[in-house]
Write a protein that binds this DNA or RNA. Sequence first.
DNA 1: TTTAAATATTCCTTTACAGGAATATTCCCA
DNA 2: TGGGAATATTCCTGTAAAGGAATATTTAAA
Lengths: 112, 112
Amino acid sequence: MNINVMSALAEPNRMQIVELLRERPLTVGEIAERLQLRQPQASKHLRVLSESGIVEAQVDANRRIYRLRPEPFRELDDWLKSYRDIWEERFDRLDDYLQKLQNKEIRTEQHD
Amino acid sequence: MNINVMSALAEPNRMQIVELLRERPLTVGEIAERLQLRQPQASKHLRVLSESGIVEAQVDANRRIYRLRPEPFRELDDWLKSYRDIWEERFDRLDDYLQKLQNKEIRTEQHD
DNA sequence: TTTAAATATTCCTTTACAGGAATATTCCCA
DNA sequence: TGGGAATATTCCTGTAAAGGAATATTTAAA
C-alpha cells in the first residue's frame, strides 16, 4: 500500500479535511473556517494531501477549490481486498482453536 | 477513521510487517529475519502495531507468535464505504464538466 | 542452577514534521 | 494602478518518533 497516502491520512487535521471534502469540494478558506485552522496551516495540510494524490485543486480566480481524487480510495480498497480473508475470519481456524484452548493470549490493550 | 491505525500503518517497516502477517502468523525472530530488521526494532514496531490493535501476540514459551487482528481491517473497510460515491465517480458530474470545459486544473504532481 | 535463546525495554541521538508568525504571490475591482 | 481578498511559502521552534546499542526478562534445557 502507498505509504504516502497513509502518512497523509495519519494526521488528525488532514483526516478531518478529507472527511469534510467527502461532502463536497471546498475552498481553503472554507476548510480553515470549518476546522478552526489558521489559513497557512490549512494550505500546508492541503499541500500534503495534494502531493499524495488525495486531493486536487481547481483554480477559480484567486481561490482554489479542493476536492477528493478517487484513485487513492480505489487503491486503498484494492489493498484491503487482499485482507478480506483475514477480516472475514475465514483463516487460521486451527490456530484460533489452539489459542482458545490454551487461553493464553497476551494483550494488555483494550480494543473495540 | 482511527488515527492510531493510520499512523501505525504509515511507517514502511510496520506496513511490511502487516503484509508479511497476511500470509500467516510469525514470531518476532522470523519477522526480523525476513525484513532484515534488528530484533529490538522488530519488537518496537510490533508493540506499536499491538497498541493500535492491528496485531496480537500468542504466547508460546519464550516466543511470541504475532498475527493480524480482523477488527481494524473491518473498520477501515467500513470507513472506506463512506467514500464509495467518490471513488466510483458517481459524484460531482457538473463540477467535473465545468472543470474539463475550462481545462484549468492545477496539479504539479504526477499520479498513478 | 547456570546457560542460551527469544523477546522486551531503556537510554541516547538524530531527524521529520506540525504549528506560529510573518511575508510573498496572485487576482479582481474601484 | 493601488488596495484588499484568497492562498501559498518561508523561517523558526518544539516535539514525537525511529534507529542503534546495551541491557533486562523470561523460559527451557543441560
